[in-house]
Design a protein around this nucleic acid. Structure first.
Lengths: 72, 72
DNA sequence: CATATTTATACCTTATCGGGTATAAAGATA
DNA sequence: TATCTTTATACCCGATAAGGTATAAATATG
């Protein structure tokens, strides 16, 4: 499970949100949240950022070697 | 100009590649590279990662407050 | 166990991304 | 200046992402 998936799932759980809650708050469809949490890689960048924004985060280029299995 | 745009442009210049070169090496279309460098935010995540992979990088969720205007 | 909630899978439709191509504009070089 | 290279803009078309909905499976709760 990649970093993005792990990050989203953990954050959502921490806030006690359902996928539907997250979708509503982010302004994306429920299906999108599901595909996001299932690791679909062909998602649109802006939609992913829309969700990440809820957690004060955004997609950024990071050195592949420096990616620690973040669970926070 | 956002981080992604800055990153891509700088790296490409450092390696002395044209947009066409980068497109070819990454296996994406020339138009995609252009839209990427022009800050289009609706691009597909996998395609962006395809380009970033050439530089050993990948999209990762990062705290928005911790994003320094990276030019490397 | 039964029931309720949450998550996963499948189908259909619309919107648009991505590629290709052509043309124009901008930059560099002589 | 003229010429060459690189980058930007505009158009068409096929493929598919995203949303909605419905159903099924999984997980919790009693």
């Amino acid at each position: 499970m990649n970093n993005l998936v792990t990050f989203i799932k953990n954050r959502r759980k921490i806030l006690g949100l359902t996928q539907q809650d997250l979708a509503d708050k982010a302004g994306v469809g429920l299906r999108f949240v599901r595909e996001l949490e299932q690791g679909k890689e062909t998602l649109r960048m802006d939609k992913v950022n829309q969700v990440l924004a809820l957690f004060g985060h955004e997609l950024t280029p990071v050195d592949s070697k420096q990616i620690h299995v973040s669970d926070e």
